[in-house]
Design a protein around this nucleic acid. Structure first.
Lengths: 180, 180
DNA sequence: ATTTTATATATAATAATTTATATATAAAGG
DNA sequence: CCTTTATATATAAATTATTATATATAAAAT
């Protein structure tokens, strides 16, 4: 699936593995992430499958960059994936809930402390969506040829915001319920 | 991580791989899931690591059952994991958002159709949390020695409910925004 | 009468992902 | 002067997870 994230970016412009990692960290991290090593190995596999081609870009005083370009086949693959509707819901994995589910034996204080800590983390994340992320997208909206993209990016940002708010609300509810 | 889900169940009682799959599907599926094959291979690995021990339970007219029991070492491992607080937020993977992020090139109708379809799926899921799941937990609450567990299970059910509501709200917002 | 569903376990092959490590250099900060 | 951060790529090893397949039988449904 990472393949499509990479194709999506490469459909805008050519990038190196390093570039793609940076891009994902500041844009899709909210709903899709990958480690550097996975990005490099996936790009290599994609080149073997002829979805992208790479060339070395020499640099002075920095290691050379291997820049990837999307091919016709890559564009077709991306377009096909985009137009194929999802028929299922993404299954979640939430470690905190798994722990909570089995926490009856544990001292109640422990899980409460953990949930207060998680609330903090989600509040920080929420603040980022509402300031940094929001600002970046607003800047893109100003450009005429980025306007359509920016509208969609704003929708994904909004998801992060609503998710964080929901999570905090649930934590508040649950903490209150377990305190009594 | 599946390891801890399995240990969590086996800490209540002994179960076969088949049992564990059924249990997960009706209880933790909302925040943790696994395929049958992964459950079987993980149990095998856990036995090698001496976290569980198994014995064959002969059956007439059905294939024999291999029933797993948690060991002392398994209980220690589980308790340690439960008491170790999570210091990070679970990163999400949401294919729908990934597609949306790159959908500017696509005909707008396509993504709208997809989102309406997703709304349907989330509404169905929401209904399940509010009826079937709720009822099962309510029944457990009645039993005195399941009361503490049931309170935590209710909290995880509530998460599923809030998540589905949030998702539907986001879809409504986004659909409306993209229609204009 | 035939098909499907449920009960039950198991493994092979593949794909996806993470963790760890190696190399190299310049700029910036303390 | 020394450490950290940023720039850049790459691979090995391990873990985690999915897909596909094989086997066997009884009960229930059509």
């Amino acid at each position: 699936m990472l393949k499509y994230a990479l194709l999506g970016f490469l459909n805008y412009s050519s990038y190196s593995g390093y570039d793609l990692k940076q891009l994902m960290d500041v844009s899709t991290a909210n709903f899709w992430h990958a480690k550097q090593s996975q990005i490099y190995t996936t790009l290599k596999k994609m080149e073997k499958d002829e979805l992208v081609i790479s060339h070395i870009e020499p640099q002075e005083s920095r290691p050379n960059r291997r820049v990837y370009e999307i091919t016709e086949a890559g564009q077709t693959d991306l377009r096909e994936w985009l137009s194929q509707p999802l028929m299922t819901i993404e299954p979640r994995k939430e470690t905190l809930l798994l722990k909570l589910f089995f926490s009856a034996q544990l001292a109640p204080q422990r899980i409460l402390t953990e949930m207060r800590l998680q609330k903090n983390l989600h509040q920080t994340e929420l603040a980022t969506y509402q300031t940094t992320t929001k600002d970046v997208i607003t800047q893109f909206s100003a450009s005429e040829d980025m306007k359509d993209d920016a509208r969609l990016w704003e929708a994904t940002r909004r998801f992060g915001e609503l998710y964080a708010e929901m999570y905090i609300r649930w934590l508040d509810e649950t903490i209150e319920n377990l305190e009594s």
